[in-house]
Design a protein around this nucleic acid. Structure first.
Lengths: 186, 186
DNA sequence: AATTTCATGTAACCAGTTACATGATTCA
DNA sequence: TGAATCATGTAACTGGTTACATGAAATT
């Protein structure tokens, strides 16, 4: 059982917690789901999913109940425990940092995906607001660096342009998303 | 020595080969360089760089000569072997695939960075042309999927928008880059 | 004398993947 | 009967990181 409050799941672990948060699922359900709409760049192979689920179970973040349906092999359907639900909520609502924007964009997008299941929509708006602010500040520092030292190689300069364009795109995206959320009710 | 023609370096390995291709470097030089301008998301820690260099050396892609400078600890400066230079050239000039565009964008950007050191500039133009074509085709299939099934959740739809915008940005970037290369001489 | 810089390396670990293995049930 | 589907799992490996360790020379 080992309900260790120190344990932090991996990114794949969080993805699985997020899916189980949406609704209880078996490993097989998750594989099917990830096959239909891939999550990040994670593999949906059994060797990937089942050990990760065992890990989460071992640390008491999910528990499984064996379901013997009329036919077929029994399935183990997982749902979040209290501490699992807690850790997901913390993951989704923790303030984002400039390091997240710089190095962990894909994790931020994963978080966004599962914020759907939070009760407070204001959390999403907060996330988008912070994300916009931090990304704007980051892109400014990139542009400053670029104009500061006139880079020797055109290849490096072009890659730097691409990086800057990437973040500009995310700023536009987040602004648009925030407008949609601010506009809608609920 | 083990000059195994079957061996394919890892992505970090290719990054190191690319740097050494630019000019002979020691592990320490590489760490300093990666500290100044990070490559991908690779760590510049010694435990990251030195074992990777040993691996490349073991497979005969680089060789090191110990340089005793006037003072300080002797350095091992690496340069590409013939087979190392070969493998870099193949890596940089191999036709890109739709899977590269879909799953390995960061590798493509890494390749682009080191194409600077290829003698033929037409290789770069070829790369950019292919990249544009494949990305356009990919983004079209994404857009088709999106309009095909009207996605339930606004969160998933927004993430899908972000994905599409990401690829559009790359198309614009590549077009602009190609114009610059086509316009310049040499 | 003490700290910083140059320079290289090892050991332990972690996340994740591939390939393999199992077995029951349903469908052709 | 044989193939496809449902369903779960293990073993071995790979790539990469962190943390630790070493040591000499240069600088303060």
């Amino acid at each position: 059982m080992d309900i260790n409050p120190e344990y932090t799941p991996t990114l794949l672990g969080f993805a699985l917690l997020g899916l189980i948060h949406q609704k209880p699922r078996s490993g097989y359900d998750i594989r099917i789901e990830m096959d239909a709409s891939p999550i990040g760049h994670f593999s949906n192979s059994p060797g990937s999913i089942y050990p990760a689920l065992q890990q989460l179970k071992k640390h008491g973040l999910i528990d499984g109940r064996i379901v013997h349906r009329t036919k077929l092999k029994p399935r183990e359907v997982f749902r979040l425990t209290n501490s699992g639900a807690n850790i997901v909520k913390i993951w989704l609502t923790t303030s984002i940092t400039s390091a997240d924007v710089k190095y962990r964009l894909s994790e931020l997008m994963l978080r966004f995906r599962f914020m759907e299941n939070l009760t407070e929509k204001s959390d999403t708006i907060h996330f988008l607001t912070d994300f916009t602010r931090l990304t704007e500040s980051h892109v400014k520092s990139l542009e400053f660096q670029t104009e500061q030292n006139p880079l020797a190689s055109s290849y490096v300069r072009l890659l730097s342009n691409r990086d800057i364009a990437l973040y500009h795109m995310h700023i536009e995206w987040a602004k648009q998303a925030r407008i949609e959320f601010a506009g809608s009710s609920t």
